[in-house]
């Protein structure tokens, strides 16, 4: 019987049921060993992810003046939240911010990746991949501070250029006016040339079986038709991943509002993430801040589930 252990087929499953012997996997490793290796990660996950999440959900039903324990108030925080004009405005702001930024990120990442994928020279492909990757190593806070200076009134790069070419008579306060501040944040870091989405899509395209492309070309399929009929349907998995990451990242956005605009002017760039931070750390309303966090979590969770389900609808993945 011992010889059968590790073999494939029906005999392998028989080996698992030998009394007094640990259940084994194909590599002669007891089945519990992989779980042992997962324990440290699991502990970290529970301590730093699940516990804070559960704690925040619990505290969202309390008035919580740290360091005292929270005082249970039921749904009071949620009732206040949905009649709080600043919170409602922050939701509206972040939806606009996320949708536009995600569209820009995804569209341009697909175009960029397709263009590079279709390059015949592999060395040029590598150069372009490098060009898209380098900006990703700049720390985001540095990026934000640079962009804050780009949008500045006097001495701001954007104004210097626009005044210099005669497009403006005098500097315009891009982040000092409610009608432009949010859009100024949307364009920080040129989301249209975001490297992360580009790299994932390019990797997915390069993993597509070459035979499919060759067959399509032989059958007279144009490159553009191939993109929409073969490439994009085949990489729905990676596209869904980018979409989820982009939407989640956008909805939880906080740093640009903190560093560049502080939620202003007149709350026009207030995001739920920054409002949560302000309520918690400036006003000391940690229960209320937890309620904002819980709503944000539910929003991102719902979106992620929706996207994951949509990704499998009528899908047949070839890549990744």
């Amino acid at each position: 019987m011992a010889n059968e252990i590790g073999q494939t087929g029906p005999t392998r499953s028989l080996a698992r049921f030998i009394p007094g012997r640990p259940r084994m996997r194909s590599g002669l490793v007891p089945i519990y060993v992989p779980f042992l290796f997962l324990i440290p990660a699991l502990i970290l996950l529970v301590v730093f992810r699940y516990y804070p999440t559960i704690s925040a959900i619990y505290h969202s039903f309390t008035i919580w003046d740290i360091p005292k324990p929270g005082e249970f108030v039921g749904l009071k925080n949620y009732q206040a939240l949905f009649s709080d004009p600043i919170f409602l405005q922050s939701i509206s702001n972040i939806l606009k911010y996320t949708v536009v930024r995600t569209l820009l990120t995804m569209t341009m990442a697909i175009i960029g990746a397709e263009l590079v994928y279709n390059l015949a020279s592999s060395s040029w492909r590598n150069i372009w991949r490098l060009v898209f990757t380098v900006p990703m190593v700049i720390p985001s806070t540095v990026d934000l501070l640079i962009w804050k200076q780009i949008y500045a009134g006097r001495q701001g790069l954007l104004n210097e250029i626009l005044v210099g070419i005669g497009a403006l008579n005098r500097p315009y306060p891009w982040i000092g006016r409610p009608d432009t501040a949010l859009w100024a944040l949307v364009f920080i870091g040129f989301p249209a040339v975001a490297g992360f989405g580009f790299l994932i899509i390019l990797a997915a395209l390069q993993n597509l079986p070459a035979e499919v492309n060759d067959a399509a070309l032989i059958d007279g399929c144009s490159r553009l038709r191939r993109v929409f009929s073969i490439d994009l349907p085949a990489i729905r998995g990676p596209l869904a991943l980018i979409l989820i990451l982009s939407l989640n990242g956008g909805l939880q956005q906080f740093a640009p509002m903190l560093v560049v605009t502080q939620g202003g002017p007149v709350n026009s760039t207030m995001s739920p993430g920054y409002y949560l931070y302000t309520q918690g750390f400036t006003y000391g309303a940690h229960g209320y801040a937890s309620a904002i966090g819980t709503i944000l979590m539910l929003m991102t969770l719902t979106l992620s589930i929706f996207i994951m389900r949509a990704r499998y609808r009528r899908a047949y993945d070839v890549a990744i």
Binding site: R154, G156, R170, P171, G176, R177, V260, G264
Partner: peptide
Amino acid sequence: LPVDYIGITSLDD
């Protein structure tokens, strides 16, 4: 005040 007095976020600036 400067044109972007709403927009500047620190006294250092």
